[in-house]
Computed example of a mutant assay.
Amino acid sequence: MIFGVLAVYAALLAYGLPRPLHGASWTSRAPRLAVVMWLAAMISVVSVAVLVATLLFVPLHAIGDTLVLLVQWCGWPGHSLTISMRWTIPRVAGVVVSAAAVLRLLHVAVAVAGAGRRSRVRHRHDVRLLGRFHPALRIYILDHAGRSAFCLPGRSGGVVVTEGALRALPPAELDAVIAHERAHLAGRHHLILTATAVLARAFPAVPLFGTGHEELRRLVELTADDSAARRSAPHVVAEAVLRLAAPPAPVLGMANTAVRQRVLRLLTADPPLPRAAVAARGLIVVLLLFLPLVVTAVPALSDLGYHCS
C-alpha cells in the first residue's frame, strides 16, 4: 500500500508538476522561493526513489520505527533493522533497475563535473594570462574587446569583466554588473545548476529534472538581478543587461539568459508576493521535503506508545 502511494506521489511530481510550476507567473515575482520549490520537488522525487529501493530489502515497519526513534528521546528499546536476503523476481528486478540508475547517475556526474572543472581551469588560465586584478573594484579585468562579465567560482575565482564591457558600461551599470555576479557566487548558483544538470542528463525522460534545470537557469539570473537592483536602481540593472546583450552576443556572463523577460521585469517592477502567498508556498516546500518520510513512518506512528513503553 505505502509502496504504491510513494510511487504515485513520485510520478505526480515528476510528470505533473513541471508544467504548472513552469508556467506560474508568481515565480518571476519571487524567484528565490521558486528556486527552493524546484529543488525541494527534485529532492522529494530522489528521496522517494531511495526509499522505494530500500523497501526492497528492509520492511516498511522497520524503516518507520527507525524514523520515529530518531526523533524521540526514549532510547532504542530492543529495536533492530530486519533485512531479508531472500531473492524474489521483483527484488532482483528492483536491484537491477536501482543499480543501473545509480551507475548512470555516477557516470553523468563525473562527466558533468569534469567538464565544468575543465571549463573553469581554462577560464582561470585565460584570466591569469590576459587579465589583471583591479584592487579598487576587486574584480579581474580580461583583455578582450567583447562585452562580457561572468564569475569564476572557487577559492581562486571571482568576478571577471572584459575590457570591452569596462569601456561600454557607465560606473553605475558596472557596479550593478559586479553586484549581479557576486550574487551568483554568494548563492552558490553553480552548484545548483551542476546538480540539476546531472539529474537532467542522467534521466532525460523525467520532465521535472529537464524542465527544472532550464527554469533554474532563468531563476538564478532573476535572483541575481534582484540582488543587484537592491544595490542599484532596477532600471540601471536593466540598462546594463541590454548593453551587455547588444551584438555581438556574449558567450559567457550576465546577459545570455532570458534577456527580454529580465529587462521587462526590472522595468515594470511588479510588487512582491503577499506574505500569505509566500507562507502558503513555503508550506508546500515543507511538504515536498518531509511528506515521503511522514508517509513511510505512518505505520510506526500508529504504534507510537510502544517505542516509549
Rank of each mutant, 00 (worst) to 15 (best):
A202Q: 00
A202D: 02
L185I: 15
G187Q: 14
I192M: 14
A186T: 13
A176I: 08
T196L: 02
R201I: 11
A200Y: 00
R201G: 03
A176M: 08
L185K: 13
A179N: 09
L199Q: 03
L191N: 11
A202T: 06
F203V: 12
A197Y: 00
G187Y: 09
A179E: 15
L191G: 11
I192D: 15
H190I: 12
H190M: 11
G187K: 06
I178F: 11
A197L: 13
R182P: 05
H189G: 08
A183C: 08
A176D: 06
L193M: 10
V198W: 02
G187M: 01
A183F: 06
A200G: 10
V198Q: 00
E181T: 12
A176Y: 09
E181C: 09
V177T: 06
A202R: 02
A202M: 04
A205I: 03
R201P: 04
L193V: 12
A186W: 03
I178Y: 05
A195C: 12
A205V: 12
A186I: 08
E181Q: 14
A202I: 03
F203Q: 07
R188T: 06
R201L: 15
H190W: 10
G187S: 14
A179S: 14
L191R: 15
H180M: 09
I178E: 01
P204L: 06
A197G: 05
H190T: 11
G187N: 12
T196Q: 00
A195D: 04
V198F: 01
L199T: 02
R188N: 13
V198L: 03
F203L: 14
V198T: 04
A183M: 10
H189I: 12
A176N: 05
H184F: 13
H189L: 09
L193F: 04
A197P: 00
I178R: 04
T194D: 15
A195N: 09
A179H: 08
A195Y: 01
V198D: 02
A200P: 03
V198H: 01
R182M: 09
R201Q: 14
P204A: 04
E181G: 04
A179I: 15
I192T: 15
P204E: 06
L191F: 10
L199M: 10
A179G: 13
G187A: 13
T196Y: 01
H184Q: 09
A202N: 04
A176W: 02
L199A: 07
A195I: 05
H190V: 10
T196I: 05
L193H: 06
V198Y: 01
L185G: 07
A176R: 02
A205Q: 08
L185P: 05
A200V: 08
